[in-house]
């Protein structure tokens, strides 16, 4: 009996190997599923949801300028501290203009007795001067995009990036947006 059992077990094992080989053979005849990268690239439709590094969104009126109001929310929420926003410096006071304006009278809140026009309020420039992203430390968590109050940030679908130097991953996003707007208008003209 022992011998028969041994043989039966061996046959069963052999059968399992043949079944496995059959599956391997079937799979061998199927077309490949991998993308052969340098010769083929991933289709654009598969990249729609891909999170590349962040980029600025052009505003409606001026595609070369972002709707960013430099609230610095993204800069402060970033866990890795890889966003650096450069603000426009506050407008320099013109000493000649200061002489003409009667500042004290207006500051008190009372209507002054002079006929001189009130000083024009200077709107502070809210758009950023520079928007630097250090992609080396970014972990693509999306907190900056989510916390932006004016939806000025989004993820790009850029992923064909490789460089031996770290400096290549410090992006000037304002310049990038301007370049994007430039190519967009050039396409429209065509």
């Amino acid at each position: 009996m022992g011998v028969i059992k041994e043989f039966a077990e061996a046959l069963k094992g052999l059968k399992s190997l043949i079944v496995g080989l059959g599956i391997t053979g079937k799979e061998f005849a199927k077309p490949g599923v991998t993308v052969h990268y340098p010769r083929k690239v991933v289709a654009d439709k598969d990249l729609v949801t891909y999170r590349g590094h962040i980029e600025l969104v052009g505003s409606k009126n001026d595609p070369a300028m972002p709707p960013c109001i430099t609230c610095l929310m993204c800069q402060s929420v970033c866990p890795s501290g890889c966003i650096k926003i450069i603000k426009h410096p506050p407008p320099k006071k013109d000493p000649a203009a200061d002489k003409n304006a009667p500042p004290e009278a207006y500051a008190s809140g009372l209507e002054p007795k002079t006929k001189a026009a009130p000083p024009a309020k200077e709107k502070p420039v809210k758009t950023p001067k520079g928007f630097i992203l250090d992609y080396n430390y970014c972990s693509l968590c999306g907190l900056c995009v989510q916390s932006c109050p004016v939806d000025s940030l989004r993820f790009s679908t850029e992923f064909y990036i490789a460089d031996p130097s770290k400096k290549a991953f410090v992006y000037d996003l304002m310049a990038r947006l301007k370049a994007q707007a430039g190519t967009a208008t050039a396409k429209e003209k065509e």
Partner: peptide
């Protein structure tokens, strides 16, 4: 299952 789980090895 056929490929691996049942495999005698």
């Amino acid at each position: 299952r056929d490929l691996v789980t049942e495999n005698v090895i």
